[in-house]
Design a protein around this nucleic acid. Structure first.
Ligand code: ZN
Ligand code: ZN
Ligand code: ZN
Ligand code: ZN
Lengths: 146, 146
DNA sequence: CTTGAAGCTATAGTTGCTAGAGACATTAGG
DNA sequence: CCTAATGTCTCTAGCAACTATAGCTTCAAG
């Protein structure tokens, strides 16, 4: 049985984050010691590692909640799980495309500025006028945080 | 003089967002009509377009605050502005590198899954075990929202 | 037995907005 | 000129996914 600190170290998750996951129902309520401290076994450890890994791959907590409840039903078809992963892939590709355009635009800006006074700064100038941009990089839809 | 709605349409920014920018001091307090409605002139319009464009390029509001106050001092050196832009470029490159790894990993997952039961789903399996991943894609530091 | 680290709860803050309620202002049509 | 439909006003609360703080209790080492 691990304390919350040990579990956090083992899974690479901060202690308050574990408590947060419990609070929102992503982790079940932990067993408690006689002194009211949380105790975790192998199952909780695996579940937390799953969450951490999925977070690292950019899945939202909502998606992870669905993936976890799917993984609790091993006999069912995995079509839903695969669909969640494919949607995440599409989302990542979308972000990648946007960031690639941003990178190009930022590079243009910093390369074109010769340094000098703000009045002549290409960075400031371009920021004030999108028509100086080479690509259309504007925010299409909202994108969740990485 | 534009009302807040016209300004929003012109700059591609939603009305509550403009009020929010004013509230946090990114836009100055607007003039008011006799009926207490906000009125904007060309200067406010340009400032808002600047903000919008910088947001589209992924700058944080903090960075934009600094860029705006720099652009208000045209005689000063633009070194600070260039540094902010370069830092943003570095940040974008970091995110790009991470997303590229994520994309590869997600593609592997969805390609390897043959479909079938959850018990055999490669997606669920890989999510539970990072050692099945080909790349090290783990979250390095915290990254601000895009 | 004492001290310091680790745990507990509860609340509030972060970023960049967005949504809602309920009241006032403006504008277009009849 | 009146009404109805929009637009705008303030204020509050909510979103994701944590993170930080305060003020306590419990535990483990020396
Ligand atoms: Zn410059
Ligand atoms: Zn642009
Ligand atoms: Zn599958
Ligand atoms: Zn992995």
């Amino acid at each position: 049985m691990l304390t919350i600190g040990k579990l956090g170290d083992a899974a690479g998750v901060k202690v308050p984050t574990i408590r947060y996951y419990e609070q929102i129902g992503l982790l079940p309520e932990a067993e408690r010691s006689s002194g009211n401290q949380r105790l975790y076994g192998r199952k909780a450890m695996e579940r937390l590692a799953f969450i951490r890994h999925a977070r690292d791959l950019g899945f939202t907590l909502e998606a992870i909640r669905d993936l976890l409840s799917l993984s609790d039903r091993p006999d069912q078809s995995c079509a839903a799980a695969d669909a969640i992963a494919r949607a995440q892939l599409v989302e990542v590709e979308r972000r990648l495309a946007r960031l690639t355009a941003l990178k190009a635009e930022l590079e243009r800006m910093v390369v074109q500025c010769a340094g000098g006074k703000i009045a002549d700064c290409r960075v400031i100038e371009v920021l004030g006028d999108h028509s100086l941009c080479a690509t259309d990089h504007r925010h299409p839809e909202t994108e969740p945080t990485p």
